[in-house]
Design a protein around this nucleic acid. Structure first.
Length: 469
RNA sequence: GGCGGCGUAGCCAAGUGGUAAGGCAGAGGUCUGCAAAACCUUUAUUCGUCAGUUCGAUUCUGACCGCCGCCUCCA
């Protein structure tokens, strides 16, 4: 039984979609003002992807929407500094986002709406709010009236009385006039003629941050949908405000399950540019780290726990990932006798049970990975002692494919065509070994190693692989 | 000040009211011409500290210490 921790209730709940067999989920995507860092990818990349893939594994038809926020204060400021239009400025980061998604092995969401393509939908939603008395105009901007939504705070459980006292220096710094410090902008009037703005009957301006997600999620998923997810920092104010806007406008529950991924730390500290521990995904790939190992790192701790990301561990994960690839390659290549071994059957069944019950428990990826490692050990042992038969081999390869349909950590099936030159050298070494000319055999092996080719002498012949693959 | 999370072996970590998954690193071994890979053994009498509840707590409660996050546009 699949369960999620729902931020709304603060509890682990059984997941039941609105419509049997079908899940509609919205993931709060990135603001494309810079390259996304590994923390972003823990959330919008691997968390969203695992959720999507596991729902499919469970047999659901999934509609996965992830927005791209391509207008906000920072983007406007930076694009002006760069002398570029909004679109020209964000295009670079959007392209990079998909490159990184692909390299990280994340499936792309089914629908990726951009804020700037949905201004009319946002204006229409603002109109609904205004008509319902939930919005008001001040200084040519439009604000949401929080006193008109009694449930405000139900997601974040924020206690405003105690809250405002201690954090007062950070509150109410807005330059606009609002009825209540908690009210937030739905539409911001253009302050200067050259800043990005849209003409609408409510005035020339741009949308507030929160309204885009309400407008776009409801457009693609309906006024009530199953899952809304994102990083934990979005709980307040972003998601709290989305709920207020959406439910005030429609009078219906907005999203039913709210899932949030914790942040990661780097070497035990908050990741920040000033601390010098700030990594974008492409930085790490550029430094030679295996993208699959990065994915493994992001999967190694359940999403609702803070993850301590360290380069030492990443090096360890690279080895782990290689051993998983080797494991599958060995199974693909093994020559087995016909038949089956009940012990292997049982091991496979146990692995599937552990994998699924782990992920059923609020996507506990640590448990799912442990199930795979335990299976790997049992299978390797059986292969060592010839207790693996053809039916087992095929079953387990299929099982690995199922596991990998969720986690995607076994990497691409390597081994394209054998490089003829490499094969010639391997043959020459085998001939030398037959002559017991080990000096020559080692020389060939070293020669190949120098070119990044690692040889392994196995019972089923010589295997070779590229270093790091 | 308000709200939330965390503190488990050298490192990253899962987890449970009944006696500690998994990965990496280390040590020894099997296999091998030697390697590599794989496998085996080994590495926490113990889960931040101190009390309490209980037949029994790492797991529940309280206090304390330490760390992290959110508190108006940050994944």
């Amino acid at each position: 039984m699949l369960r999620f921790h729902n931020t709304l209730s603060g509890q682990l709940e059984e997941f039941r979609p609105l419509r049997e067999g079908e899940v509609k989920f919205y993931f709060c995507g990135p603001t494309v003002w810079d390259y996304a860092h590994i923390g972003n990818f823990r959330s919008i990349g691997v968390f969203g992807d695992t959720l999507r893939r596991y729902l499919k594994f469970k047999g659901y038809r999934v509609t996965h929407v992830m927005n791209v926020t391509d207008v906000d204060d920072r983007i406007i400021e930076r694009s002006q500094q760069a002398g570029l239009s909004l679109n020209d400025y964000t295009a670079k980061y959007i392209d990079a986002l998909w490159e990184d998604f692909d390299a990280l092995g994340c499936e792309r969401p089914d629908i990726v709406p951009r804020a700037t393509d949905h201004i009319p939908e946002m204006v229409a939603l603002i109109d609904r709010l205004t008509e319902g008395g939930h919005a008001y105009r001040s200084d040519d901007s439009i604000y949401f009236r929080i006193t008109s939504f009694p449930d405000y705070g139900k997601l974040s459980k924020i206690n405003f009385a105690g809250n405002i006292a201690g954090a007062s220096e950070r509150i109410d710094t807005d330059k606009y006039d609002k009825e209540d410090a908690r009210d937030f902008a739905l539409w911001k009037s253009a302050r200067s003629p050259d800043e990005a703005a849209w003409d609408a009957h409510i005035g020339r301006g741009r949308p507030g941050w929160h309204i885009e997600c309400s407008a776009m999620s409801m457009k693609y998923l309906g006024e009530t949908f199953d899952i809304h997810a994102g990083g934990i920092d979005l709980v307040f104010p972003h998601h709290e405000n989305e709920i207020a806007q959406s439910e005030a406008a429609t009078g219906k529950p907005f999203a039913r399950y709210w899932l949030h991924a914790e942040h990661l730390k780097v070497e035990g500290e908050t990741m920040s540019k000033s601390k010098g521990n700030y990594f974008t995904f492409r930085d790490l790939v550029g430094r030679g780290f295996d993208p699959v190992a990065i994915r493994y790192a992001l999967l190694s701790v359940p999403f609702r726990k803070q993850l301590n990301f360290t380069l030492d561990d990443l090096r360890g994960h690279e080895k782990t990932v290689v051993s998983l690839r080797d494991f599958r390659a060995r199974l693909i290549e093994a020559r087995t006798e016909p038949g089956t071994n009940p012990v292997m059957r049982a091991a496979a069944a146990r692995a599937l049970e552990e994998f699924e019950s782990g992920l059923d428990d609020d996507l506990n990826t640590s448990v799912a990975l442990a199930a795979i490692h335990n299976l790997k050990r049992e299978v390797n042992k059986a292969l060592d002692s010839c207790e693996m038969y053809e039916d087992d081999r095929v079953d387990i390869l299929n099982l690995i494919a199922r596991f990998d349909s969720v986690l995607n950590i076994f990497g691409m099936p390597e081994r394209g065509l054998l490089d003829a030159e490499i094969q010639t050298l391997i043959d020459e070494r085998q001939e030398a070994r037959r002559r017991r000319d080990f000096a020559r055999a080692d020389e060939v092996r070293d020669q190949l190693l120098a070119r990044g080719i690692i040889l392994e002498d196995t019972r089923d012949g010589v295997r070779w692989k590229r270093r790091g693959a």
